[in-house]
Nucleic acid binder design. Structure first.
Lengths: 136, 136
DNA sequence: GGCCTAGATGACAATGATTGTCATCTAGGC
DNA sequence: GCCTAGATGACAATCATTGTCATCTAGGCC
């Protein structure tokens, strides 16, 4: 380790990472890594798929974006607020609403505590069809 | 489509499916399909991995077992009660506690309704370390 | 400006869970 | 016992994701 490892993000400002970040700033719904890669190509940015995955991984580690999984197992990424929250996601258009759930948080902690479980985490996602898609 | 495709729901009582069902009756924690396949082999049952997957799929469709995913994306199967419930799962030993969450159900429905979403479903899983594993 | 090197990139291979294929087998109605 | 739709299983195929590694580059240093 060199003595320059001070700042939290020992990352370089490459144009590829910037392109991924910029894209996520524009797209406010959950997208797969492959979709994001395709969107980048549509924009004329030439970024390798591997790099897209790495950029997303790094950003997720730092907390700059959220990762979730569809019931089918596909992994989705989205730029989100930093506070703890959950998602209401449209099954057909991926429109996303961030929802806070203090009720759920305390419920999960209480349930886990009653059974003596420690080091608790939880996943809560709500899926449905949004008004726009439902009216079609 | 041939006119004989209407019998999609028929099932036979093969010994392979019975072996899978019997194993699930004994194992009361979430296991991957591959683990179950291995356990069957340990028991001396010769059942193909493909068949294990198909049996699990069929049983899940009928509601005889629950499917969930770890945050890592791995798919887990378990024989469960038929009523709607969620799970508290130990991260290290997969010990599972079924938990009811009327609070969560109504919360999810209310939130979704507030945003005009319809046809709601949700996933709620709690992960932690169980007392036994925590004391090691 | 150029030098230097840790970190970043990207084409490609590899992984690994799951699903598809298809020749063969069998449950169970006749 | 016969017959056939459905089931099986060895194997190939899929597909998102991760690993590999030779090459490139950001940015601190001179």
């Amino acid at each position: 380790m060199s003595p320059y490892d001070d700042s939290a993000t020992r990352q370089r400002n490459t144009k590829q990472r910037h392109a991924v970040a910029a894209l996520l700033a524009d797209v406010n719904d959950f997208r797969t890594a492959q979709e994001l890669h395709g969107l980048l190509r549509d924009r004329g940015e030439r970024v390798g798929l591997t790099t897209v995955y790495r950029a997303l991984q790094t950003m997720a580690d730092v907390g700059e974006l959220d990762v979730m999984r569809l019931p089918s197992g596909e992994q989705l990424f989205r730029r989100c607020s930093r506070t703890h929250h959950h998602h209401l996601v449209c099954r057909s258009c991926a429109r996303t609403v961030e929802v806070a759930g203090p009720t759920v948080e305390s419920w999960a902690d209480r349930i886990a505590g009653e059974h003596g479980f420690v080091d608790i985490s939880h996943t809560v996602e709500i899926f449905g069809t949004c008004p726009t898609c439902a009216s079609v």
